[in-house]
Write a protein that binds this DNA or RNA. Sequence first.
DNA 1: GTATCATTTTATAATCATTATAAATACCTA
DNA 2: TAGGTATTTATAATGATTATAAAATGATAC
Lengths: 140, 140
Amino acid sequence: MNQKIKDLVEILKEKNIKPSYQRIKILEYLVLKKNHPTVDEIFKDLVKEMPTLSRATVYNTLDLFKRSELARVVTIEDNETRYDAEVSVHGHFKCENCGTIFDFPVDEKALYSDALKDFMITEKNVYFKGICPKCHNTNK
Amino acid sequence: MNQKIKDLVEILKEKNIKPSYQRIKILEYLVLKKNHPTVDEIFKDLVKEMPTLSRATVYNTLDLFKRSELARVVTIEDNETRYDAEVSVHGHFKCENCGTIFDFPVDEKALYSDALKDFMITEKNVYFKGICPKCHNTNK
DNA sequence: GTATCATTTTATAATCATTATAAATACCTA
DNA sequence: TAGGTATTTATAATGATTATAAAATGATAC
């Protein structure tokens, strides 16, 4: 536990981010909960143990993490921004029934297109929607 | 021109959508302008020739088109929903400098992942961000 | 052709995620 | 400890989207 907190502090320091209590907790949340939480989910969970936490802090911190490449935005629905501490290229599948988001591997080479040979690519996103196996079986 | 309108009416009828003037014009806009417009862009352009047009109609109609698979949502930024009359699987590249959105081909087979073999996939989305050749050269 | 009913559109208000602002707090250095 | 900077907080403002109810349009039966 202490070790883990220490790791989080190190991660922040490497990115020249001052490790405030709020930042450590938000980073910890992202790293431990790998369920691509929305801003609101992060806020509502963390405010339980940090009653003075402000939504603005959550927004500011996530934006800071994004700019520092500690987290990436997962845009699947236009009305909820999610965050993911796993910044490598991978796909997201969202079940339209239960809302769960699953990761899946993406072959980056396969995504290459000649049409983009003169483009400077800074971000690659792949997401699918549909019904996950669990919901598919239940509904049948 | 008349022929084209007639085609649009046919497209709507095939989906069992009554071809009202507003629906024809919005579909025409999507089909002719292939620039993945936002709802606001569609509204602001069309209200010029249809002064009584309401934003609600644009929202309702686009939602109807989406459900009827006449258009697909292009979610790239979380604060602007775009629409595309091209419903086949293809990628979108958004230039972070000029905002232009480019289409590029995507090899659907290459996107296949064993991890999703038990999932029912209804929608596949690929989008990249970066700098387009034009902006890249200008800024250099 | 007119009355009736259903559909579509419109205008407006409500909602909700996000951003902006300014004050309060915490942190750092001299 | 004092003074200055960075961070957090509370609150208000913004802006896209959705909800609601009235008005307009269109279709059908008589």
